[in-house]
Design a protein around this nucleic acid. Structure first.
Lengths: 356, 356
DNA sequence: GTGAAAGCGCTAACAC
DNA sequence: GTGTTAGCGCTTTCAC
């Protein structure tokens, strides 16, 4: 019973083990398993029996090297824990799976270095595409580095996809699936202004984060198009977490900042801000109006239900995958821009002075 | 200039292309890239120049076949969109990355067939471990199938990990990292009972879902240990979404079910239930008390802030990875059980009649 | 139909 | 130090 190769149950067996046990050659095993070549019923039966007895399954990595691997797709995000990231990730994963691709993930916690390393690893794995999910830093150096990464990926037959992030320099080999970040913020802010508010606090994210910037631009533009110039003291920055919203709102309140409405950069931020307002004894929207951004499922359950802007996050993820996988190598660079819309609920009212 | 192999920028280049360009053999390239063997400065320089010019990076799949690949870890979950799933996923991903492993994901949307297929694919990829994240079906057939999968994985040198899911049959080769699901529900229900409530509505999940079952068992046990037998009409089942909570609560209210408190199987369910209660003009906790389960970040921002049970989800994910990767092949089967605790906030008060 | 042999891209043991 | 050769596990010509 002393054999070189493994018996059932003892370690991974190879195609040669199966061949030996079935009394055929490795090529024959490959053929019956592949199912693309004709094989006699008798051998097929014997081979399959050996396969089952050994619980054999072909090594996917070896198949990949031989040129018949399962295609793989990678996606990178800041932190899967954020509801909007999770929605996009879900869209990506579902669509990739539907199209027969495996999904590799990496969360970076905002560390650009880590992000770059991962992309390089994905290039080594010959991933069909690398999808950057959600906004990111938007400094010139960052864009430039990403441009190089995109080239590098492209020349290896892969492709960089920006999902929910603005394009790089024109001509860079990237596929971008964005939503109208600024437009949504513009409409949202316009809605608040229309109610009569004039001093609107903006609870933003990190100053060099593309999403934060886009939303702030919308806030600014909505004011300027109405001939207003919002007080810079009214723009606070933090990050996109619930805790940031809570902290910023408390700070604004304790500093005695004057405002009648607040625009939070995300629904999570709005949630924290709302709690801070409640704790300060403020009624929303009676004493202060509040809006968010993202329309996460929870937004309806805040009290008052949050007015916010809806972003088709899951669709964004799906589209990113579908677009890049449908791409014909030499094709034009894709750039899709999905629309957003504000969903009005109960967290905005005219300012108190206007009601008196 | 007509050469068989690719020049810079044209498709993926191999180690042989680099070797040719540097005027050395492939092994030498391998050696300077590996950095484990001594090489002369001159050749190293030339090789590295060729590597950069070609933007070469070694094929990770080929390395894997040759036995020096990056280890990979797979995780499977129902739907990354659920906050508790996302937390566990984050823990898994962070720890895997810290330990130098790549992460493959798959979401199943509760489809057992899809789950099984994916696990098989992971076996083919020689994943170091396959982590099932979050609860799942808990029928005898399912357990049996999973037992077979666990054996199959084990004999291939991989390992099945259950993270936030109860063990299979004793002796099955699985690593399980659970939390005290039932204990948490018991404590939570005890807390509500202690306030004087006697008719407590339970908004559960799918009847054969392990998590739903555990929580319901806790609810039941807390009653029985006090000599009570809760009215079966008070136990509703749905799923773990916000919408389910909303729907179930509306239904309970419109049916005229009598209860003074509600235990929602998850915080998401509680959020939906809370909104339904508000819409029905009920004050929480004045008219009805409400508690959740999971302690997701949002729980604090509901109004009233939600009393719930805290589960160390992220730690659960981290531990699952750490435990399985630290495992010595012949070792005892691990089974960790993490504690939970109820966090009291503002959503529970004594029943109205007790206050009168 | 089936086996032998070559090849995928890489690493490592063995020469010189 | 560096080239040659064999080998990882698989697929796919090319013969017979």
């Amino acid at each position: 019973m002393t054999r070189k190769s493994a018996d059932a149950g003892a370690g991974r067996s190879t195609i040669r083990d199966v061949a030996a046990r079935a009394g055929v050659s490795a090529s024959t095993v490959s053929r019956v398993l592949g199912g693309t070549y004709p094989t006699s019923d008798a051998t097929r039966t014997r081979v399959m029996r050996a396969v089952h007895e050994l619980d054999y399954i072909a090594d996917a990595r070896a198949k990949a090297v031989a040129g018949v691997g399962t295609p793989t797709l990678a996606f990178v995000l800041d932190d899967i824990t954020g509801p909007s990231f999770a929605l996009m990730a879900h869209g990506v994963e579902r669509e990739a799976s539907r199209l027969g691709h495996l999904c590799l993930v990496c969360s970076t916690d905002g560390d650009a270095r880590h992000e770059l390393d991962f992309i390089e690893t994905m290039r080594a794995h010959r991933a069909a595409a690398v999808i950057l999910v959600g906004g990111g830093a938007d400094t010139p150096e960052y864009r430039e580095r990403m441009g190089r990464v995109a080239d590098s990926l492209a020349s290896a037959g892969s492709r960089l996809v920006l999902c929910g992030r603005p394009p790089l320099a024109p001509g860079a080999p990237v596929t971008v699936i964005e939503y109208d970040n600024e437009g949504g913020a513009y409409a949202l802010c316009a809605h608040v202004l229309t109610q009569g508010h004039r001093r609107i606090l903006f609870l933003g994210g990190s100053p060099d984060h593309s999403t934060a910037q886009g939303r702030e631009r919308g806030y600014l533009a909505a004011h300027r198009d109405r001939g207003m110039d919002p007080d810079p003291a009214l723009r606070l920055s933090g990050d996109f977490t619930r805790d940031s919203g809570y902290r910023l709102m408390r700070q604004a309140l304790s500093q005695g900042l004057e405002f009648t409405a607040v625009i939070a950069a995300t629904d999570m931020v709005a949630a924290g801000a709302l709690t801070a307002a409640h704790e300060a004894g403020l009624d929303v929207p009676g004493d202060v109006s509040l809006v968010g951004y993202d329309d996460i499922p929870f937004a309806r359950d805040l009290h008052p239900a949050l007015t916010t802007v809806h972003v088709p996050y899951e669709e964004l993820g799906r589209l990113a995958v579908r677009t890049v996988l449908a791409r014909t190598p030499g094709a034009q660079d894709e750039h899709l821009l999905l629309g957003t819309h504000v969903v009005v609920r109960d967290s905005v009212a005219p300012p108190a002075n206007a009601r008196r």
